[in-house]
């Protein structure tokens, strides 16, 4: 083997360090863009607020307390309190997943942004990790905004509700990774319809608007497998002041789900981007 050539760089000015900006540079790129387009984030907070007002407060007026939670009377859960954490989980999910599906697809297929990034020392791993980090940060940011609205509406009954923030990061990680995997499978913009075909029913049926007890047992098992159901569980329990080891189940589920998705997505991205 020969040694690396180490002569003075014959260029305009000094020698750069031979290293990669890493995932951090990828996050910086997104921050740069969102400096121009931050109203989009505000719009994403607005959507769950609409749901909360129409379902939580509107339908909540008819429903009153949620049957099957903690009986009736003093300790019972009011309907908007029941719906709010589910909408928070959904906001974290959508925020993260939109970023790695919609936003990444253009950069991957049409603009070929990643191709030019990968001519630098940046690796596919740097890109994937950076985009995932940004997506979950963005998901958490949307969640925090929504949490403020929920707080203002007087729906937060327990200080444990603050657990919502780290939980939202975990939900963001799981769905950002899933999105990263999905985006490698998409062939064209029409395929986004297929995502909607999965996401909308999941949003409607993963105990967002009513408790699991409504379903017969076999359906319950099916719903319990959904990542959104687990996300809602992770947020709803502390939101309602119920904190215990039971929270470890959804947390572990999301961690495994996200890590597995990320691992498969990385392998697929490597072949897509390094042909």
């Amino acid at each position: 083997m020969t040694a690396a050539v180490d002569l003075p760089t014959p260029t305009l000015s000094g020698r750069p360090p031979a290293r990669s900006g890493g995932a951090r540079a990828m996050v910086l790129r997104n921050v740069m863009i969102y400096r121009h387009t931050w109203p989009l984030l505000a719009a994403e907070v607005f959507e769950p607020v609409l749901y909360l007002v129409s379902f939580g407060i509107g339908i909540g007026a008819l429903v009153g307390h949620v049957p099957g939670t903690a009986g009736t009377g003093e300790g019972a859960v009011r309907y908007p309190q029941f719906v709010a954490p589910a909408l928070l989980a959904t906001a974290a999910m959508n925020g993260a997943m939109n970023e790695t599906t919609f936003n990444m697809f253009g950069k991957l297929r049409t603009d070929r942004t990643y191709e030019s990034i990968l001519t630098t020392p940046m690796t596919v791993w740097d890109v994937a990790l950076g985009e995932t980090c940004w997506a979950l940060l963005r998901g958490a940011l949307v969640t925090a905004g929504f949490l403020l609205v929920v707080l203002a509406l007087g729906l937060v009954g327990s200080a444990w509700a603050l657990l919502v923030l780290p939980s939202a990061l975990l939900i963001g990680f799981a769905f950002a990774s899933l999105g990263l995997l999905v985006v490698t499978l998409l062939r064209n913009w029409q395929d986004f319809q297929l995502i909607q075909l999965v996401m909308l029913p999941m949003f409607l049926f993963a105990t967002t608007f009513y408790p699991l007890g409504v379903y017969p047992r076999p359906v319950q098992l099916l719903v319990e497998c959904l990542p959104l159901y687990q996300s809602i569980e992770l947020l709803r329990q502390p939101f309602l002041g119920q904190v215990g080891p039971a929270l470890l189940v959804p947390a572990a589920y999301l961690l495994v789900f996200g890590t597995a998705s990320l691992a498969v997505a990385l392998r697929r991205l490597e072949t897509t981007l390094r042909g």
């Binding site: 750069p16 360090p17 290293r19 990669s20 900006g21 890493g22 540079a25 910086l28 790129r29 740069m32 863009i33 603009d111 070929r112 942004t113 191709e115 030019s116 990034i117 630098t120 020392p121 940046m122």
Partner: peptide
């Protein structure tokens, strides 16, 4: 393959960051 979501200067700034 310039970064169409960024300005001319930002294109150079972020590209430098990719090199650390």
């Amino acid at each position: 393959t310039v970064d169409t979501e960024l300005t001319v200067r930002e294109n150079l700034l972020i590209y430098g960051r990719y090199f650390g």
